[in-house]
């Protein structure tokens, strides 16, 4: 498969304009588009770059090209210049820009990492993140190639996955056998790892948060009783809502040959604990030793 043929191409807006240039009677459409694009560029400059400098206008111009191209690329229309042009003319540049910008907003609202922090709801941070992702994806030089649409797709998949991981960790916290875990910050991957690691014992508990003592006990008991990990994990999965099972299964695959193996091996408990703390439990392990 030739990947470059997909990614290395001009922004969709430019493709549509190439189709417009081929049309016979294009004066009116061109003039309308020109006014719309100019207007959008000014608004983008006012909001994101700077409408009082040539550089600011220039950057806003590239963002306008990119955002409209993103709108076209995600509209699910046929991959021909003519189809893109028809779509653009039918809806008008402003609406297509709005579509593109809504995609950016949607993306920006999804978590950048599988982590919940106090700052997520801060309006200033949100605005900053929105601007950062807008500048990253929609910066399209009309005379060059643009891959923003592909970047958007990948980023969207990544972030949707993050969202899922966070939802799964939240569910685990809510159903924690020792009661709901209350903490405004959440390291979702760590919570999931802890739950999977504790599930090896087969005691039927759901553990989303731990301390060092619990981990010590877990290792000691595991080495003593040698529980059947696969059976216990299967029992554990039966308690989990189906939408989260794939995530946990994936994590089990990951941990089976690594930390779980070490828990059952003759490795020193102290070494195993350090590794658990550093690579798996992270901030979901309480600092207090009690």
């Amino acid at each position: 498969m030739n990947i470059t043929s997909y990614t290395a191409r001009a922004p969709q807006l430019v493709q549509a304009l190439e189709a417009l240039a081929q049309r016979a009677d294009n004066q009116d459409s061109a003039s309308t588009l020109f006014h719309e694009l100019s207007g959008i560029t000014v608004l983008v400059a006012k909001k994101f770059t700077n409408d009082r400098t040539a550089d600011g206008m220039h950057d806003a111009f590239h963002l306008t090209v990119g955002c409209i191209s993103l709108g076209i690329s995600q509209a699910g229309i046929a991959d021909s210049n003519e189809a893109k042009l028809s779509f653009l003319l039918q809806h008008g540049a402003e609406y297509v820009f709005q579509m593109g910008f809504r995609h950016i907003k949607e993306l920006s609202a999804l978590p950048y990492a599988a982590y919940v922090s106090d700052f997520d709801n801060d309006a200033f941070i949100q605005q900053r993140n929105l601007k950062a992702i807008f500048l990253e994806i929609c910066n399209a030089d009309p005379v060059s190639v643009w891959t923003g649409d592909a970047v958007y797709q990948n980023e969207l998949l990544d972030r949707k996955r993050n969202r899922k991981i966070i939802d799964c960790a939240k569910w685990l916290r809510k159903n924690n056998s020792n009661g709901l875990v209350k903490d405004s910050e959440l390291d979702a991957n760590a919570a999931i790892s802890i739950a999977v690691i504790f599930a090896v014992s087969g005691d039927g508990c759901i553990v989303a948060r731990t301390g060092q003592r619990e981990l010590e006990n877990l290792i000691a008991r595991a080495r003593e009783t040698r529980p059947d990990v696969e059976v216990n994990w299967n029992d554990f999965l039966k308690k989990i809502p189906p939408e989260f099972q794939p995530i946990l299964r994936e994590r089990m695959e990951e941990l089976r040959g690594t930390i779980v193996k070490k828990i059952f091996s003759k490795t020193k408990i102290k070494t195993v604990l350090t590794e658990l703390q550093d690579h798996y439990a992270g901030s979901e392990q309480d600092i207090d030793y009690s």
Binding site: S31, G39, E94, Q98
Partner: peptide, 12 residues
């Protein structure tokens, strides 16, 4: 001339 009313800031 297009006759389409501008969205203004609503494009965001």
């Amino acid at each position: 001339t297009g006759g389409r009313p501008s969205l203004g800031e609503d494009i965001f």
